[in-house]
Design a protein around this nucleic acid. Structure first.
Lengths: 213, 213
DNA sequence: TTATTCCTTATTGTATACAATAATAAAAGA
DNA sequence: TCTTTTATTATTGTATACAATAAGGAATAA
């Protein structure tokens, strides 16, 4: 294994997380430490640390002294996640000052553009990645580190949701276009309008069709 | 060491957390694994797991390959925490249904009463503990597991804030009385009024006097 | 066949040893 | 004296060994 991080635990964590978020390990699947250790060619120690960290993020469920399984997301939990997500992003919109918007506009615009590009070439994984980065940048622009930390954790579950429930629809491309409108409304300081749009935007991005909030 | 949990890691985690939240280990203090291992009479392994978990909760800062220190909270971060807290609790108020309120009212009333009692006998630690439990119960009544998880994490930082900044004032006793009003407003379904009161309540509970949000 | 007990295996939990790195102190050079 | 280099120590990172527990299956009794 070629080390390109600071330590093995961090590497394994990143690797394992991406494997779960790509659906390579599926919900409910057992992931014994020994097995992963052999697969990644390291000892159980860094594996164990990575798995436990993923446990903190809710990506794996750890049954003490038994085993760890990749977590699943129920419909109810999916709706719960979407509801909290809306609230946090709306708080971010409220907190964004013109100055902080200015400082983050370049990032926002770049991710919006790259998300659009991914949609144009029908790169589904790319859409989700760039969309995530757009929304993370928006929250970052709030300049509230606690809000960012909280949102960052939630974002991981949102990614898992997207993979698990295969949240891709043809209409998604239309909703991606809303990123531009969101930026415009932010620039014009029309916060209430922006929040209303965000509500609609997130519902369509995050929720299974028939889900009611 | 008398084991009374499932495993040592969890025990050490709980113990270390409470020591930090009681101010026994102060912000900025180095906590070498070996040192803690001797203090608790166990090997480095469970210590290490506990410390890394506390790192995920933001109670310790881990400098890779160097050392871990108990984290400190800046004034800016304190304000950030309070702002997010207000938002999350107001979301909880919005989500509480009459049915779920009913199911959690006994807990709410009990913690409110015990908080009041702690104030009467001037038990400062008790006030904070029961107050925390009151607010956690309120969030739990929202029946949104994601909201609860997110809030639970934040709550740990709130406790740290209270210890670090010694957030105790004579007026606190007055604000504790608001718990009763909050419950009444919830029962009457006066959500907007309840949220307004919660805003004021949290500001006075969580913020250093001169802090502006 | 169905339940129950026992044994085997799989898996985690903890301690320990050693390597790698960073912090600290001491020594050398200017 | 002050800076730079070198050596020493403190601390983390990783591998490994073994104990403790849980899971699964085979043997036994009904």
């Amino acid at each position: 294994m070629h080390p390109h991080g600071q330590n093995l635990s961090d590497e394994i964590y990143t690797l394992l997380k991406s494997k779960i978020l790509r659906g390579e390990y599926k919900g409910g699947e057992k992931i014994p430490e020994e097995h992963l250790a052999k697969e990644f060619g390291v000892s159980r120690t860094p594996i164990r640390e990575a798995v436990r960290r993923l446990g903190e993020y809710g990506l794996v469920d750890i049954k003490p002294r038994c085993y760890a399984v990749v977590s699943s997301i129920s419909e109810k939990e999916a709706a719960d996640i979407a509801r909290v997500r809306i609230d946090l992003e709306c708080l971010a919109i409220d907190l964004i000052t013109p100055k902080n918007l200015e400082a983050n506009l370049k990032d926002l615009a770049r991710h919006a553009a790259e998300c659009q590009y991914a949609a144009d070439i029908d790169d589904r994984a790319g859409i989700f990645i760039q969309d995530s980065l757009f929304h993370l940048s928006l929250v970052k622009a709030s300049d509230n580190i606690t809000l960012y930390n909280v949102y960052e954790r939630l974002e991981i579950k949102i990614q898992q949701l997207r993979v698990n429930q295969n949240l891709y629809s043809p209409e998604l491309k239309d909703y991606i276009k809303q990123h531009g409108t969101i930026m415009s409304l932010l620039k014009e300081g029309k916060k209430q309008e922006c929040k209303n749009l965000m509500y609609e935007h997130i519902i369509h991005e995050t929720c299974p069709e028939d889900l009611k909030l």
